[in-house]
Structures are given as C-alpha cells and as structure tokens.
C-alpha cells in the first residue's frame, strides 16, 4: 500500500516518536522534584533529613475548626486525612482560603510538625455550582 519512500519516512517518524517519548520520560524522571508543585503532610513525614533553609510547598486541606487568628498571625492545620502539619503565617490570605478547602503553603519547615509559611495560595476543586444548590446538598447530607 505504501510506496517505499513513504515507508522509510514512516519508520523515521516512529523512531522520532519513540526517541522523544523516552527522552522526555527520562527528563521528567530526573526533574520529578521540580514538577511536583507541593508535598502532602504524609510525604513530609517521610523526609529523613529536614532542610530548614530550603523553601518548599505543602498542600492539603485546611482542617475543620483549626484556624486560629492572633493579631496578624494565622495558625492552621493542613491535613491529607492521614497526617497533619501545623502552619503559621502572617499576612493576608486569599479570599478563597477557608476551613475544609484546599490550600498550598509556601515557606520553610521548622521541623516535621511545624511549617512557617511565607505565602498562602488557595486551591479550589473541580466542582462548580450556584450557592443554592450547595445549600441543598449540605442539607441533604445532614
């Protein structure tokens, strides 16, 4: 069906696809630490040597009822429902920052339990709905 020249071109193409796929996969393997945008509290638990000078990001859910505000300092617990980490932060938080919602904190680890954040980013999920619908859902859940 294919003429010989097209066959050669096809094999070149397949070779190029394989070559680039493998090289990209290897690049991603080596750069994995940079691709991961944030670590979960469980992953922090598994770190053996904590570098208190390295800036990292911790992400998860803000634990219900854990937000405490004192003056301009805010303290809350980030959880992935297996492990937890306490985050302290002074500054303004995004409007979407709330209990039970996703959060990403940028800053430095004090130790495995404490995280000093320099910046707080709010993470929202893929659900979009009007407020009334959400109210109904919550009522039904009760």
């Amino acid at each position: 069906m294919l003429n010989p020249k097209a066959k050669i071109r096809l094999s070149i193409l397949v070779g190029a696809i394989l070559f680039s796929a493998i090289s990209i996969f290897l690049i991603f393997k080596t750069l994995e630490d940079n691709i991961i945008y944030f670590y979960s509290p469980s992953e922090i638990k598994q770190i053996n040597d904590i570098d208190t000078n390295k800036s990292i990001r911790v992400g998860g859910m803000v634990k219900d009822g854990s937000i405490q505000t004192k003056k301009d300092e805010i303290k809350f617990i980030v959880t992935d429902f297996k492990n937890e980490i306490i985050v302290t932060f002074s500054g303004t938080v995004p409007a979407l920052f709330a209990e039970g919602k996703g959060v990403v904190a940028e800053g430095k680890l004090q130790d495995k339990e404490f995280f000093l954040a320099k910046r707080i980013l709010a993470k929202h999920d893929e659900n979009y709905m009007p407020p009334e619908i959400n109210k109904n859902l919550e009522q039904n859940a009760k």
């Binding site: 945008y37 938080v93 995004p94 409007a95 979407l96 920052f97 910046r119 707080i120 980013l121 709010a122 993470k123 929202h124």
Partner: peptide
Amino acid sequence: PTWGTWWA
C-alpha cells in the same frame, strides 16, 4: 482572585 497568585 481565586488562588491568590497570577502564575504558578
């Protein structure tokens, strides 16, 4: 307005 950053 949502995440609190322009770019990540």
